[in-house]
Design a protein around this nucleic acid. Structure first.
Lengths: 132, 132
DNA sequence: TTTGTATGCTTGCATTTTGCAAGTGAAGCG
DNA sequence: CGCTTCACTTGCAAAATGCAAGCATACAAA
């Protein structure tokens, strides 16, 4: 996707403006996933070719990096870069919005409350879990 | 688009997870636009059929409402609902992220700074401009 | 050594969505 | 009455997606 304008909203949409990319970032950020197979198992049901394409694009955009897995060289480990981790505030605001307007949201009221009133600590916790 | 899961990230993506919907919200939120023709004139160059489709979907999702324009009944005025205005924190975080990582971003450093350090007032200003 | 399994990813192909250009009908203007 | 403006709609080619199957590599068990 080429750049459509210098608008910052458009910039993000050019990179992750599709139905799948941010779900990969979500899996990395909140669910401790890091393997191709794990992304495939997410309940939204991404197709294998789409997943391969999006991993490639996210890596090109330096939002994620992949390394061979030391204990099994057929595996690859995907992790978030700084640029990827910096998407966290966006994801938190999305969770707060959806938690407000989706009556059957998986986001608990407590979590939405923490996003509004305890954001710094919440963010530190999420990022801490990533380094394990 | 049907709901793929109860995940809050997925909920937002099911509604505005494409390259265009959030640009319409941006035009309404920051640029004072409210007419079909005005959205078309945005520099990203949306096709007319896509615009019509997205306006319909945003209205179905109660993110915008349309009313006939009193002074000219061929025109329609589009405005943000509460649900639409509540997307503002997400948009601001997107602007901050893109302002950080896009070297040629239209977002000024001052604006990004205000998002981080003067958010309440900034949000009040943006929302104030909407009511005019 | 062979056979099987798990892994990340590719391929082929039908369906869906998008992009582009042109057209349509309703309202307002001169 | 013709002409313009407006918000769309339509037709069609091109691109993206969804689905099922296949593939190459690495490791493991027989």
């Amino acid at each position: 996707m080429k750049k459509r304008s210098n608008c910052p909203i458009s910039y993000l949409l050019d990179i992750v403006g599709d139905k799948w990319s941010l779900l990969i970032v979500r899996d990395l950020m909140f669910k401790g996933k890091c393997f191709y197979r794990e992304f495939l198992e997410s309940e939204e049901g991404m197709a294998t070719n789409i997943l391969a394409d999006r991993l490639k694009r996210l890596e090109e955009e330096k939002i994620i990096v992949s390394k061979p897995y030391p204990e099994n060289r057929t595996r690859k480990v995907y992790t978030l870069t700084k640029k990827g981790k910096d998407l966290l505030p966006i994801l938190l605001e999305i969770i707060a919005w959806s938690g407000t307007y989706d009556r059957k949201s998986g986001a608990t009221k407590e979590y939405v409350h923490r996003i509004c009133n305890d954001r710094e600590k919440l963010m530190a916790e999420v990022l801490d879990n990533l380094s394990e």
